[in-house]
Write a protein that binds this DNA or RNA. Structure first.
Lengths: 237, 237
DNA sequence: TAAATCAATGATGTGTACATCTATTCGAAA
DNA sequence: TTTCGAATAGATGTACACATCATTGATTTA
């Protein structure tokens, strides 16, 4: 019945892998917002016809990661500032109230798992944005993996990926060491709350991480386009 | 440049319409959970080839409404009870905290719009589940349309559609008049809170509606499969 | 000179033939 | 009679030829 050829995985597995690969390239900004993907190029790279690529593009369009335009190509969606603000506002609400949604007790190996992410961050070459994205994404995936409720987990993870893309784009203009240090501190606190079995505190810690990232993002965006903005106009929704 | 043939809409519009049509049939349970859709049949019905249908199926699979199986067909996703509970728990959390996310002030014509839904419910033929679904879906779409934040709005609407399908399935076993009356009362209170410009109250009203629906659903599910269940075993997660 | 037109190029959309997979059915052997 | 297996029917997956659309650049005309 089952014929698991080890060297040639079945089509289903291969297509899932292809989907993950392309999505990963969007999430790590190898395909930055606004860039154009072409079916033919990817088909040639992966040695398949356009058909399976088309199916993946359709899915990524449904997930709001691509915008397919007839005769042009598939453009990676841009993140408008007002949409980014909506996402942050909503993410912070979810984080604040996610305490009761965590598994209880936390998995015994959780502290060392998160310690691993911190170690990987320390070994990072300054400026390696793709590798940083990979670690950052893996960290938040593990973090939301502690959430028991399927929808609370998936919505938080989806919105993280949407905002992380926009955030990483601006990282070259930020202070690398400061950013790394900030994320390491957050992971430290994550480990602290896990060891204390304090899910509510963990949720609030996530909220603070989102706020910090947003602050960095807003500062940078403000520095770029409007250097003489008055403080009274800085209020947000 | 633009050539808007009125009788033959362009392909983009036609495909969007096709997508909406098929999705609507899932949401109104014309394609109930577990049923199988075939590309060929739909292609023939709409007078197109399998290609555009395939693209729509891929999107609906990404939206977790279909499960495509090679050599079999596309099955409408079933709603497992534990997933339904997760959805309700998460929806109630969102509703409770959605007060500050509403537009302010409410649109002036909102009360009469919702009054319209109540009138349509009253004119309903008992047992017409498809029409009831249409009205119910339109009501909640209008309700979440009052939400300012894009993500709070879309997540609430998406989860409503997921749970409403499971709920409508069990409606034949419920008391029709009682269910209609309950929904009418909810709409009455919705109008009340809108007129009073009380968004927090409106959010709590939505939460209560979700709880009521869940209660009906749980009662019915319990009556069906376990008639001698003891009260102490009725506790849920 | 400048603007408008049109042809060429390259992208996605559609339709179709064929490959692959699944479930069923029919038949032969125990 | 039961059980196992091979053949079959019908579904989706893949690849490709062609249609349609958008962009670009050259060419023609006012």
């Amino acid at each position: 019945m089952a014929k698991p050829k080890p060297d040639q995985p079945d089509a289903q597995t291969r297509n899932d892998l292809l989907y993950d690969t392309i999505r990963e390239r969007i999430f790590t900004n190898r395909y930055p917002p606004g860039s154009t993907l072409r079916e033919g190029e990817l088909a040639e790279e992966f040695g398949v016809s356009r058909s399976p690529i088309r199916r993946i593009f359709a899915k990524l369009e449904e997930a709001r990661l691509l915008e397919i335009k007839h005769g042009v190509g598939a453009q990676v969606t841009e993140i408008r500032p007002d949409v980014y603000n909506d996402a942050c506002e909503f993410r912070m609400l979810l984080a604040i109230h996610s305490g009761p949604f965590f598994v209880s007790p936390f998995p015994p190996d959780a502290p060392e798992v998160f310690q691993g992410f911190k170690d990987k961050l320390r070994e990072l070459t300054p400026g390696d944005l793709v590798r940083f994205s990979e670690i950052n994404n893996a960290y938040f995936t593990a973090l939301t993996g502690l959430i028991r409720n399927r929808y609370m987990r998936e919505v938080q993870l989806t919105l993280f990926f949407e905002t992380a893309r926009a955030w990483i784009i601006q990282m070259p203009d930020m202070d690398w060491d400061k950013t790394i240090a900030m994320l390491c501190d957050e992971i430290d606190e994550t480990i602290f709350f896990i060891k204390r079995e304090d899910p509510v505190g963990l949720g609030l810690n996530i909220r603070n991480g989102i706020f910090s990232a947003k602050t960095l993002f807003d500062q940078d965006a403000a520095d770029e386009e409007d250097q003489q903005g008055h403080w009274s106009e800085q209020r947000r929704i």
